[in-house]
Structure formats: structure tokens, C-alpha cells
Design a protein around this nucleic acid. Structure first.
Length: 654
DNA sequence: CGCGATCGCGCC
DNA sequence: AAAGGGCGCGATCGCG
């Protein structure tokens, strides 16, 4: 392997010459720095590449040599504050390496050659990390991503088994990393990291060679193409980050912090003692323990998955007169939001384990196009797809901390009722479909259907035969998500606030008034079961597969669960695919027409773009075109609808 | 001390 | 008869 470590410019040039003659290559980076996982901020110290006939590894800034030339004792404090001494090896100086600048300059012609496919495992990370060395320019495609491929071929793989190491072990039986070297390359000796980096590129290449042909064989080409077209888009978003008003976030932190202290005290006072307010077992003891032992003597009624007695918000709310429950509910709300969305982002100064996630006003997040079984994106580190809604008090403050740079605006667009659009598209007829075709909103259509009234909002309290806004809310909105998710009458009763009897009646009326839905469900289930091997269905827009082994289960519950997943995947997955198409369209249109504009975020049916104030109107038009215009509207039978606002803060968009 | 499981809960 | 789909993450707790 020694000859495959590149130390000189001459060597690297000859490598590039070889790679330029190939149709495709795999590559990988190793990164260091306080923000090693954030492509916008990290430092690349290794690049490795593999193709037909050659695999190389290019060190460019590794700090250690290979030979141990001595040891030293390093003091480290443990949790209790005790100082312990660890023996740490001292390595020889590292060999002389090319600088990342030189490496990027020589690699540039290779990466910027259109027509050579660049393959990585989780490409947005590697692509984003190297972009800063290419003058901030994302290199052109075609791209490919073995993680995307593997996930399309088996969407049910658990997230933790979805890394390159796991695949390499499973498919090639090879294990080359027992120490998680990639997590902190800078503490490992030179040769070890060289080997590790080399193997990463090599196995990405081998995995691609073996698995890519299966994409076409399984009829997944269209879904795959969109996912790889998303690579520059998601890389761009990952690099852009979202701008934050840090002082505002800090003042919210203080406000919530002092509020929480009071709420803590309320809990202790009500319970008559101090206990850990975040510990389910301790809460159990307090709530359900006998009064003689200082408990509240409440009767538990809800089990956790593991069979314990639940103390979740549902349970607490069911004892509305108990002061402990009341106090715990208030505390939990504040604690959850403060710890998840504020403290974890601002970090703890002086604690290297809890760094501030906001750098120069920007918070960077990661969108994974292979993060879910349905085809939606998932978001992580941090997840910006679950920020509290602006219609809640703390949500208004937290979402309000996402703002635009001075002189800029946020253009925020979201699809209206996108899941029901997909449902209507699949149905192709019936009251929901007709409603969409005539501009009736789906909640109104649903409420009117089950109430046997006319599908419009009444103007005279109901004498005209229409439905009231309250009926729309109560029946229409409830039906909307219960259909999509396959909820039962109990959930309907709970959500709509009606009796079980009435909920069952709603369900029956829905089935008679909207018979197409049940027929569609049955058709899709039959379709999935009619294929040879593992049952699967394909999403309506791009034909992504969802395999559902449990569809044939003898167990009623398992089978029902799989049937609900099937139907939901069609809807949720179809909606996600429209958004993916829209994102690709908006990215390229903006690049061409308003290059100053930047995609910041996407949250399932919503996208956020930041741009200079005087370009906001132009951006708005582009976004609306991208989400609803020809080329995307052609893919769905009912009209797409977008709400698009120009605002200063994310919270102002709703 | 680090890791993983568990509970609970934020969003769409 | 009976059924809520999809995520990520913070805090706790038990294990090795």
C-alpha cells in the first residue's frame, strides 16, 4: 500500500491522469477540527480515491507519524473531579505532506470534469467538506452515493447498520476498522489512518460496482436519479446554514430558564419533596406510590412499551385536579423546549463536549435524503425539522430566532395540504378529488361529506347548506390525518373531541361518502402482495419501493400495522418526492436567475430561502414556479397549491 | 466513562 | 374487533 500514498505533486498529477481516463471513481475525506462534522467549518486532512486499476490516499495535514518514540503521562479529570494519569504514546513527526491547497489545485480538473461520475458514501458530507478548497464552488456532476443506493435497495436497514463499515462487513466480510479511527483521525498514527482512508475509498468503489446495477434491475432509476440530483442541492443547504438572531435566542434562554426554576419549585412544593423531575421511575413513585409513603396515590392506567406505568403528558393531563401533575406538565414543557432547542444549540461555554452550534450567526444542519423509510428527508445534528411551531408561545420565540441577514429577507413557501393532494391524485375521482378540481379545500370537502352538507363554508350560519368553520376544523381536519395515517375511532374521538359512538359514526359515514379510499387501500395491498418475494409497493411519483414483510403476517396487529404503513408510505412518500423535485428546480433556477439567493431549510412540505431584500419578489416567483409550475404540476392530477411569504423571521410565515 | 436502551416529545 | 404514519434527540439509567 505504501506506493499508493501520495506525497508529491508529480505523483498526484500522474494519479489524476489515470483517473481522468475512467468513467467514474469513488472518493472519501477525513476531517478534523472542533466542527469536524460540519462541512462548512471542518478541515480536510486526508482524501482517498479509488477507480478501476488504482486506489490512492492523499494525506494533507495529518499531525502524527507512525513510529512510537516514547510515552508520556497526561492528566485528565474524571467526573468527580479526581485527576487521573493516562499513558499516551508519543509519535515521531509526520512525513512531509502536500498542502490541501496544492492537492485541491491538482485535483480540480478531475472533479470539475463533467461526465466523470464522482461517488461517495454520504456524498453531501464529502462534497461539502471539499467545496471550501474549490473556492466555494460545488463541483459538477454526475454524482453518486452508495448510501443512497443501499437505502433504495433496502430502505428497512436500521440507521445504525447503514454506514460503510456495516455494509463492507455484511457484503464483503471485511472489517478494517476496529477503533473507529474516522471519529478522530488526528490521534492515530499515520500508517493506520492511511490504511483506513484507503479502505474507505476502495470499499465505496467496490460497493458501487456491485450494487449500482441493481438500481436499474429493480426499476429504481427515476427515484435514484432524483436522489443524486439532490446531492448538490443538499450540499448547498448544508453549507449555507440558517441565520440566527443569537441575542434574541439568548434572551429567550434567560426568560425560559428563570421560568423553569419557578416551575421546578412548584413541583417540589406540590409533591412535598425534591426528586428528579426528568426521571420516569421517580415520577412513577411520586404519582402512583401510596400516600403513606409520600406518593400521590394516583391510579395508573397507561403502560409503556416495556410494561411500566407511563408518566407521559397524556397521563399527567388525565389528573387535572392533581397539583403535582399540573406542575410537572408545566415544567416538562419548558424543560423540553429549553434543553432541546436552546441550550443544546448555544452550548456550554468552557465545556468542549457541549460546543456552541452557531458560528458567526449561522446554525448548520444536515439533511439526509436516505434518512427515512418513506423517502422523506430526515434532519440531524441538530434536527431543524422539529422546531416548535410559531403558534405556540415558546415556538414563536424559538422560530423567531431564525432571521435574515441585514438587508435580506426570508422567502418561506409551503405546499398546502400536500398529503391530501397526493391522496386525491391517487384516487382520481370522488368527492375529495372533485373538491380539489373545483378549488374546495380538502377539510371542507371531508367535513361536508360526513355531515351530508354542501362543500363550502357557510355564510349564514348553515341555512345555505354549507358547513361552519368549527365543523371544518372538528370533522375535516381530523379526518385529514386519520385517513392518511389509518387511525381508529378512538383516535378520531380523542382528536375531534367527540364520543366514541360519534367517532364510529364519522368513520362509517366516511366510508359511504368516500368509498374510493377503501377501494384504493385494498387495491394497493393486493398489488403489494401479488409481487414475487417480499411484498412491496411503489410510491406514486417516483416509484420508490417500500418493502413490507409483515403484510402476510398471521398476526392481526402486525398485518394491520403493515397495511397502514403501506398506505401512509404512498402518501407521505409521494409528497416527499414532489418536494425533492421542487428543491432541485428551485436550486437551479435561483443559481441562474438570482445567484445571491440561498436555500436555507426544508421541512417536509416547506422551504426557506434567504435573499437580498430587493430580490425577494423575484425569488418568490421562482419558488412558486418551482413548486407548482409545469414539469411538476404535470405529475399530479389535482392542482398544487403553495403559500409563499416574504418575511424577516421564520416565525412570521404562519 | 462510554454506550445503548428506554421513555418521552418536538415537528410534518 | 381494532388500528397513528414518519423522524431525531435530551435525560436517565444500567451495563461493561
Amino acid at each position: 500500500m505504501t506506493g499508493n500514498i501520495v506525497f508529491t505533486a508529480e505523483h498526484l498529477r500522474s494519479v489524476v491522469e489515470h483517473f481522468l481516463k475512467q468513467p467514474a471513481f469513488a472518493w472519501d475525506v477525513e476531517t478534523v477540527g472542533d466542527h469536524r462534522g460540519t462541512p462548512a467549518l471542518n478541515t480536510v486532512t486526508w482524501i482517498s480515491m479509488a477507480t478501476h486499476g488504482m486506489t490512492v490516499v492523499i494525506p494533507c495535514g495529518h499531525p502524527l507519524g507512525t513510529k512510537i518514540i516514547g510515552t508520556t503521562k497526561e492528566p485528565r479529570k474524571d467526573k468527580t473531579g479526581k485527576t487521573k494519569f493516562f499513558t499516551v504514546p508519543i509519535y515521531e513527526d509526520p512525513p512531509e505532506q502536500l498542502s490541501i491547497g496544492t492537492v485541491a489545485e491538482i485535483l480540480r480538473p478531475l472533479f470539475f470534469t463533467e461526465g466523470i461520475t464522482k461517488i461517495a458514501h454520504e456524498a453531501t458530507f464529502d462534497t461539502g467538506s471539499i467545496t471550501k478548497y474549490f473556492d466555494g464552488e460545488i463541483f459538477p456532476g454526475p454524482y453518486d452515493d452508495t448510501k443512497v443506493i443501499m437505502r433504495l435497495l433496502d430502505e428497512n436497514t436500521a440507521q445504525k447498520d447503514n454506514g460503510l463499515k456495516a455494509w463492507t462487513k455484511r457484503i464483503f466480510g471485511a472489517e478494517y476498522d476496529h477503533e473507529n479511527v474516522g471519529k478522530r483521525v488526528e490521534i492515530h498514527p499515520f500508517d493506520k489512518v492511511a490504511h483506513y482512508s484507503y479502505m474507505d475509498a476502495l470499499y465505496t468503489w467496490l460497493l458501487w460496482l456491485q450494487k449500482f446495477p441493481r438500481i436499474e434491475r429493480e426499476g429504481l432509476t427515476e427515484a435514484w436519479k432524483v436522489d443524486v440530483d439532490l446531492i448538490p442541492v443538499l450540499t448547498d443547504m448544508r453549507l449555507n446554514g440558517a441565520h440566527m438572531d443569537v441575542p434574541s435566542l439568548e434572551s429567550t434562554q434567560e426568560e425560559m430558564g428563570s421560568r423553569m426554576v419557578l416551575q421546578e419549585a412548584d413541583c417540589y412544593r406540590a409533591a412535598g419533596k425534591e426528586f428528579n423531575l426528568n426521571s420516569p421511575p421517580q415520577k412513577q413513585k411520586i404519582l402512583f406510590g401510596p400516600k403513606a409513603e409520600g406518593g400521590q396515590g394516583l391510579k395508573p392506567w397507561k403502560q409503556t412499551d416495556k410494561g411500566g406505568w407511563s408518566t407521559d403528558a397524556d397521563v399527567l393531563a388525565s389528573y387535572p385536579t392533581n397539583p403535582v401533575c399540573k406542575a410537572l406538565l408545566a415544567y416538562a414543557d419548558t424543560h423540553k423546549l429549553l434543553s432541546t432547542y436552546i441550550n443544546s444549540w448555544l452550548g456550554e461555554p468552557g465545556n468542549p463536549k457541549k460546543p456552541c452550534l452557531i458560528t458567526d450567526g449561522f446554525l448548520y444542519t444536515e439533511f439526509q435524503q436516505h434518512g427515512t423509510v418513506t423517502g422523506r428527508f430526515s434532519g440531524r445534528t441538530p434536527n431543524l425539522q422539529n422546531i416548535p411551531r410559531p403558534d405556540k408561545p415558546y415556538g414563536k420565540l424559538i422560530r423567531g430566532a431564525f432571521d435574515a441577514l441585514p438587508g435580506h429577507k426570508l422567502v418561506v413557501a409551503d405546499y398546502g395540504q400536500i398529503e391530501l393532494v397526493i391522496l386525491a391524485h391517487m384516487l382520481g375521482k370522488g368527492k375529495l378529488y372533485d373538491g380539489f378540481m373545483h378549488g374546495v379545500d380538502p377539510h371542507t370537502a371531508h367535513a361536508a361529506g360526513v355531515l351530508h352538507k354542501k362543500p363550502f363554508i357557510t355564510k349564514d350560519g348553515g341555512k345555505d347548506g354549507g358547513i361552519t368553520p368549527a365543523e371544518r376544523q372538528k370533522y375535516g381536519k381530523t379526518l385529514g390525518f386519520t385517513i392518511v395515517n389509518g387511525a381508529g375511532w378512538k383516535t378520531i374521538a380523542e382528536t375531534a373531541g367527540v364520543s366514541g359512538k360519534e367517532a364510529k359514526k364519522i368513520q362509517e359515514d366516511y366510508d359511504t361518502e368516500f368509498p374510493e379510499t377503501d377501494r384504493l387501500k385494498i387495491k394497493l395491498i393486493k398489488q403489494a402482495m401479488s409481487v414475487s418475494g417480499v411484498p412491496y409497493i411503489r410510491t406514486p411519483i417516483l416509484g420508490r419501493k417500500r418493502r413490507l414483510r409483515g403484510l402476510f403476517s398471521d398476526d392481526y396487529g402486525t398485518r394491520g400495522y403493515n397495511e397502514r404503513q403501506l398506505f401512509n408510505t404512498m402518501i407521505q412518500g409521494g409528497a416527499a418526492e414532489l418536494m425533492k423535485l421542487a428543491l432541485i428546480r428551485v436550486y437551479w433556477a435561483l443559481k441562474e436567475q438570482v445567484p445571491e439567493a440561498r436555500l436555507s431549510l426544508t421541512v417536509h412540505d416547506e422551504m426557506v430561502v434567504m435573499c437580498p431584500e430587493d430580490k425577494a419578489e423575484a425569488v418568490r416567483k421562482i419558488v412558486i414556479w418551482a413548486m407548482t409550475g409545469g414539469g411538476i404540476q404535470d405529475r399530479v392530477k389535482v392542482p398544487l397549491n403553495v403559500d409563499c411569504k416574504i418575511v424577516d423571521r421564520w416565525a412570521d410565515a404562519k
